[in-house]
Design a protein around this nucleic acid. Sequence first.
DNA 1: GTATAAAATGTAAGAGCTTACACAAAACAT
DNA 2: ATGTTTTGTGTAAGCTCTTACATTTTATAC
Lengths: 331, 331
Amino acid sequence: MNIYDIAKLAGVSIATVSRVVNDSPKVSEKAKAKVRKVMEENNYTPNVFARGLGLGSMKTLGIICPDVADTYMAKAVSYLEKNLQGYGYDCILYCSGYDAEDKQQAVERIMKKQIDALILVGSDYADDSPNYFHCIHTVSEQIPVFLVNGDVEDSNIYCVYADDFQAVYDVVDELLFAGSRRILFLTDSFSHSAKRKLEGYKVALRGRGFPIDDKLILYADKTIFATRDTLLRQRSLHFDSVVAANDSMAVGAVKYAYARGLKIPEEVNVIGYNNSELSISCEPELTSVDTRVEVLCKTAIDSVMALLSGNEIRQKQMVKCHLVKRGTTNF
Amino acid sequence: MNIYDIAKLAGVSIATVSRVVNDSPKVSEKAKAKVRKVMEENNYTPNVFARGLGLGSMKTLGIICPDVADTYMAKAVSYLEKNLQGYGYDCILYCSGYDAEDKQQAVERIMKKQIDALILVGSDYADDSPNYFHCIHTVSEQIPVFLVNGDVEDSNIYCVYADDFQAVYDVVDELLFAGSRRILFLTDSFSHSAKRKLEGYKVALRGRGFPIDDKLILYADKTIFATRDTLLRQRSLHFDSVVAANDSMAVGAVKYAYARGLKIPEEVNVIGYNNSELSISCEPELTSVDTRVEVLCKTAIDSVMALLSGNEIRQKQMVKCHLVKRGTTNF
DNA sequence: GTATAAAATGTAAGAGCTTACACAAAACAT
DNA sequence: ATGTTTTGTGTAAGCTCTTACATTTTATAC
């Protein structure tokens, strides 16, 4: 069942059928109705490939994220997909893994799909290879490229990210104000976002005239147990607060406190990041920074749609975070 | 840059170029090398639409899941996507929502994309509309339809699911053996999988000659707090074990125990389901049923690939679960 | 060196749509 | 009633590939 069949059955030309399909204004109501009826009756769906060929686009966006199994990215992908539907766009999803080389491969592969725009979720560039960067840049000359919670210095690649600097700054400042003196900063990566957080940490300390102790900046694997164990191994490390770059690591810190018999929040404050379900599952419940994924994603969608309509947008956009206070802090 | 340009540059016909692209055996090594070189140099990528038109397929699968933000589905989608890559298939992802009508719409929309097969993740049919069922059935006459952790009575629709019956049966039996007498079954849905679990619960009780108390079968919303609050509201309900249909609800039960001052596992045993990150984040850590999503997904992939190659497979497949014992139980 | 088979290549006809352009019909002005 | 717009419709070319079939080239047998 193709456009010719419909045309024949409706007694019109294929051009008219095509116009009806594309909702062109220059078709008489009569013809429109007739064609629609025939299409309905025969359950006709225009072939996407042929349409794509003719139109040069299939209304499809590419989404690449390192791992949808990660709660944060899953949330983002979910939001993006659901809301892109409203604009008539579909999403091809690739899970690239975290490796720069794999990310690059994913980009190259997805580009063969004639997508209209590319959205990179949680892809940071700080630690990525120049090759990868070059690859993305090349893509950005063909279609809009947008980073959700990423950051690049490239006038052609657009991004939105959480104001991690301010979020951590505020938290650390508040901790200091509340009397905390040895604040541990816990992270798993060297991404732009991690750097922003670390910067917030440092500036807040300096702001109140406290020195920065490098031993209090700790890297570990991003799992609850790995974090706990890393902390347990730091025999001589003392701290009265933990600011983690994500909730898993924060829960790891909570587990550490259990293991050491430290009271939370009396002896240790713990602050998580992302405000995921983890933050309410542990005990006490985690105080956590909410990066407002929905706002990030909404910004992304609006921006990409703007770009696709040929409008200009700001290259970088930032979204304020929001601290959700719960039981692991006493301020 | 299209196939004609490449053909001209390589000094061959478009047919030869096409054959090289499709790795046809009937091209001389010499020609193959020449064409490949030209393609490389010019960074040529065949147009998917045109290929799709010619081949009638673009090596794309559709994946529909109610919500990728759900850890369980996210895990599944992640696994599916990553492993499908190896077969040269890409995935179009739709997040349908849980409503039967929305699911149906998602199916109808995704079917316009000329996908080669449809994978439904976590879509159960027990509570779904006949309309939806009919819709899926129609689709299954055109392309393979496969349910991951779903179940249907339709010889044309294939599925794989966890052996929830046995898993719950075993757990309940073990609890009874360990002396538990009032086991609460906690679920949020009436899905096939929920029914299988409930059946396991009932059969295990009967198996040891205990009566089934309907008050001990409780429905609540699938969030930690909703579950906790629902339990708190059941003033006169007594139980010494909780078997939950997912980890969120199990954590809700743990929170309930905190609120009531009940010791876990001394006064209440709690068993979760899915063995998600939640199960290790709470305290004590949850004993939880692992449904082995990777095995489910691997089965799905193998099956769909078999179907796409025209092979026959069993309509239903089942995967054994695995109980991970942790701190919330004392057996 | 010819006949025959096998391998490589090319030609041309689709695949199903969009759309510029040409043309016809209807609407409007005079 | 005639000429001029406006509106609706159709024709045909084009989008980029695949592939059956025809043709040429090369290899193999005798």
